[in-house]
Simulated assay, not measured.
Amino acid sequence: MTRVAFQLQVRPELLDEYLARHSPVWPEMLAEIAAAGRRNYSLFLGEGGTLTGYYETDDDAAAQAYLASSAVAARWEAEMARFFVDLDGRPDQAATALTEVFHLEDQLADTGDSPASDIDTRTDTEGSAS
């Protein structure tokens, strides 16, 4: 599985409209994202319109190719392109992936430790199981 994060800049004057366009996203676009093999997909909006996206996939090149050939994705991206600053091409194809520098589970696996969320045998201060 591959984790992909990317960053785009939303035009500050269009932030309200950008948010409205995602509440909700077209059902057919949601279906295309899922059919492309992207999952656990999230967008986070920061100060001044900095948008960070994250998703997981087994084959990002195949997912990008699928979406590049999708008529639904082409329509969605054509409508969304105007929201972004300094973007050359479709947002789903032109966003540059961020470099992952830390992932907790990977480093825990390298040390032989299990994530705390896998096994929770702790008790609270009153002795009941949590």
Rank of each mutant, 00 (worst) to 15 (best):
V25R: 04
R82Y: 01
M1F: 10
A81W: 00
L19F: 04
A62G: 05
D118T: 10
W26V: 00
A95Q: 11
A36V: 10
D88S: 12
S130Q: 12
M29S: 02
L15V: 14
D120M: 10
R21M: 11
Q9C: 02
M29K: 01
E28C: 00
L45E: 06
A81G: 02
A35V: 07
A61E: 15
S117G: 00
D86F: 03
L43Q: 10
E79S: 09
D88N: 13
D113F: 14
D60N: 15
G48H: 10
D120F: 07
R75A: 14
R38W: 13
Y18T: 04
G48C: 03
R38A: 14
H22P: 01
S42G: 00
P27Y: 03
N40A: 14
P91M: 08
T99C: 01
S23K: 13
A62Q: 12
P24D: 06
M1N: 10
A73N: 14
T52Y: 08
Q64S: 12
V4M: 03
A34P: 00
T121M: 14
E47P: 04
A65I: 06
D106M: 02
T57L: 09
Q64G: 07
M80L: 12
A74S: 12
D106Q: 15
G89Q: 07
F83C: 05
T50S: 06
